[in-house]
Design a protein around this nucleic acid. Structure first.
Lengths: 203, 203
DNA sequence: TCGTAGCTTTACCAATTGGTCAAAAAGTGG
DNA sequence: CCACTTTTTGACCAATTGGTAAAGCTACGA
């Protein structure tokens, strides 16, 4: 069994594992953890169910693998926010990167949202270990910028929450957005958010 | 069978139906539609599973009933936004009412979020029939306010989206918020959002 | 008190679903 | 071509789950 414990993965293992993970991302993000079935994942991957279980020990391991892979991608835009850059530029840049992610990786956004929505049963440790330190560090950076008079004084924690909420909204609530809007929202959303955070943070 | 088709519901019917709906709200909002089981709902309601099915024709009907009941509650804060009131007061009031709802009705918020997240399979008609006209009407009101110079010019549609996103975030992503914050977030969130929308909308 | 309509439960199904197993098939190095 | 490893599959399970049937219980008006 190719359980990551030993050896190097063969070419075919790489291919099939990523086929499975991509299919699982489709299915989990569309139906949630309980709503997804191994048969659906197998169909989407073009493999048989027992073959799926040859590469992953079970449904849960597939889900956990996806969540783990997602974590770095997810934190990346925040990591890139540079304490030594221009505060307004850095923050507005962060907003745009998050908005781009909502457009380019909607499945990942919904997978994450579904997990958090249900109390983050498989991600609380990750949130504490990875997200929380980064969050605190970047909040401190923002606070420094404000103390230096480069940005208006607001609560950095809620500022970050509002950035997450407003950007991810376009992926997570896409079905609602599409009912209410006729045109593609990315461009107008980008302009709105730029305007909103510019006016909020102007010192 | 007490399928709403005839007669008046008895005292015991009223009690049990609301017991069931309250239990179902707990279970559906915590685990999603597929993740919830009739046994869980029955346990939470203190009734037997067949007894649940005496009052509702099936799992789906319970879910749909909850969604229908939710719709009016959900739209209410937006309905209350008065075109003849003071624009800034009305909009900031709307933000606070939505934030209060996220605190006071987190189960409802999560039920709604879960439904939208999965493509709103049982709510798209409602969104089109109820939400969309109201959304368009209120966007027009906001646009009028802006044209009169009472508010800064922003895209009303994205303004409303941002209000939904930032307020519901505290209910839907509660587990994440609680990891990142030590204190209770409602008061500080209220101040932050008031500040954000005040600065954005000041003419 | 009795009959009846409304309510509840026990016992049960059929379908779905996550997962197993042994055997077949397909690569792969010599 | 052969032995051996890796990959794939068909057949099968046990548990869960939404739902049913029919009998039993309860409230309540006559």
């Amino acid at each position: 069994m190719p359980d990551g414990t030993s050896k190097k993965p063969s070419r075919i293992q790489m291919r099939n594992r990523s086929l499975i993970l991509d299919a699982a991302l489709d299915v989990f993000s569309a139906h949630g953890y309980r709503g997804a079935t191994l048969d659906q994942i197998a169909d989407a991957a073009g493999l048989s169910k027992p073959n799926i279980l040859y590469y992953f020990s079970g449904k849960e391991e597939i889900h956990v693998t996806l969540l783990n892979q997602l974590m770095e991608t997810w934190l990346d835009p925040l990591v890139e926010m540079d304490a030594s850059g221009d505060p307004m530029t850095e923050l507005l840049g962060y907003v745009q990167r998050k908005l781009d992610m909502a457009r380019d990786l909607p499945r990942e956004s919904r997978l994450f949202a579904g997990e958090i929505l249900q109390g983050a049963p498989r991600m609380l440790p990750h949130l504490r270990a990875d997200l929380k330190p980064l969050f605190n560090e970047k909040c401190a950076v923002i606070q420094t910028w404000m103390d230096e008079g480069k940005l208006a004084q607001v609560d950095p924690r809620h500022l970050v929450f509002s950035i997450w909420a407003t950007t991810q909204h376009y992926a997570d609530f896409d079905s609602q957005v599409r009912v209410l809007l006729d045109d593609e929202p990315h461009g107008s959303a980008a302009r709105f958010l730029d305007q909103m955070y510019r006016s909020l943070l102007a010192p």
